[in-house]
Design a binder for these strands. Structure first.
Lengths: 175, 175
DNA sequence: ACAGCCATGTAACTTGTTACATGATTTT
DNA sequence: AAAATCATGTAACAAGTTACATGGCTGT
C-alpha cells in the first residue's frame, strides 16, 4: 500500500493535481521508484471512493486539485505510527531458495551464485552512486543509497551462509 | 509472483491436488508464510489458463490432480535462473521514512523509533527461535531464520544511520 | 512546425487475498 | 457423536500496473 499512503502523505502537505503528485513522489524517493501517471489517477479515484481525499473544483477548472480529508489524515497517521513488518510480505528470494533446496533436479548452487552475482553488481552500483552524493544537499538520496546497500549486503551474507550450511550438510552433516 | 512460481515448483516434483499444494508450500517455507487454500485454487485456474499446468482427470475423479506442462517447466526454469531484484519492489519503509523527513508536522524520530523497536522485537523472536533448531534436521527453518535475522539487523542499522545523519544535519550541517 | 514535457483520464488486466458455502474423511 | 482436518471451489475485491487516447503549453 505504498502508493496509496504516499499520495496521502504528499497531499497532507499541500493540495496538488495528479501529474504533480507523480513528480513529487519521484522527487521524494530520489527517482528510485518511477510511478506511472495513470496509477496516480486510478489511486486518487480509489482514495476518493474511500473518503480519504476530495477533489476541489472539477466542475469549472480543467485540472482539479486534490486535497486530503480528515479521514485521510487519520489514515496517514496510522501509517506513520505503524511499523512495517517484513514478514507480512512473502520473501521471494527466501522462498525460491527453500524450494530449490528441497527440489530434486534444481541446481541450488547455480541459483545461489546467480543471485549473489546480481546482488554484488547492485552493491557496486549503489556504492559508486553514493560517492557522488552531497551528504547535506542530497540527504534523501544518501539515505536511500544506505538502505539499498545494507539490504544488498545482508542478501550477499545470507547467500554465503546458505552455501556454507549446504556444504556442511553435504560434507559430514549426516554421518 | 511468488505463489504462482511456488506452485509450479511443487508440481514440477510431482503432481498434486490443491489442498496438498497448500500443505507442501507451508511445509517447505517452514510455516513462515501461510497460504490461504482458496488462493491455491484461483492460482491453479490462472496457471491452467496460461498453459503452465494441466489437470489430470477432472471428469470422473472427485479431486483432480494437477501436473506441470512443458511450458510450465520452461517458466519455472526462467524463474530459478533469474535473480530477484530488490529495487523492483517498492520499499515501504524507505519510502515512508523519506516522505516523513520531507514532510512538515511529521515526527520523524518517532517513526524511526517505532520501527526500530518493532525490528528489535522481531530480531529477538527470530534469534530465540533459531536456537531451538537442529542444524541438520531443520535446515530450511534455520536458513529462513538466518534470512529474517539478517534483514532485521540491516533494518536496525539503517534506522540508526538515519538518526545519525539527521542529527548531523540538524546540528551543524547547514552552518 | 515540431519535439518534448505537462496534464488528464480510462480500459483492461495481473497477482494476491479473503470470506463463504459445502462436503468427505479421520480422529477423539 | 463431535471436533478436527482434508478437500474443493466461487464470488468479490484490493492494489498495482500498463497501454492507449487525448490535448495544452513551451521552447527551438
Amino acid at each position: 500500500m505504498s502508493v496509496r499512503h504516499s499520495l496521502l502523505a504528499l497531499l497532507a502537505e499541500r493540495p496538488a493535481h495528479g501529474y504533480g503528485l507523480k513528480s513529487h513522489f519521484e522527487k521524494r524517493t530520489a527517482g528510485a521508484w518511477p510511478l506511472n501517471v495513470g496509477q496516480v489517477y486510478t489511486t486518487l479515484d480509489r482514495l476518493e471512493r474511500d473518503g480519504l481525499v476530495a477533489s476541489d473544483g472539477p466542475p469549472e477548472e480543467a485540472r482539479s486539485s486534490w486535497r486530503i480529508t480528515d479521514a485521510g489524515r487519520a489514515t496517514l497517521s496510522e501509517w506513520y505510527a505503524a511499523a512495517v513488518d517484513d514478514r507480512a510480505v512473502r520473501d521471494e528470494l527466501a522462498i525460491k531458495v527453500l524450494l530449490a533446496i528441497a527440489s530434486q533436479g534444481v541446481d541450488v548452487g547455480r541459483v545461489l551464485q546467480n543471485q549473489r552475482t546480481a546482488a554484488l553488481e547492485r552493491l557496486q552500483r549503489y556504492t559508486r552512486n553514493k560517492m557522488r552524493l552531497d551528504p547535506v544537499a542530497e540527504l534523501p538520496s544518501l539515505l536511500l543509497a544506505d538502505a539499498l546497500i545494507l539490504k544488498a549486503e545482508a542478501e550477499v551474507r545470507w547467500l554465503d551462509l546458505c552455501e556454507e550450511r549446504l556444504r556442511a550438510r553435504d560434507a559430514g552433516g549426516g554421518a
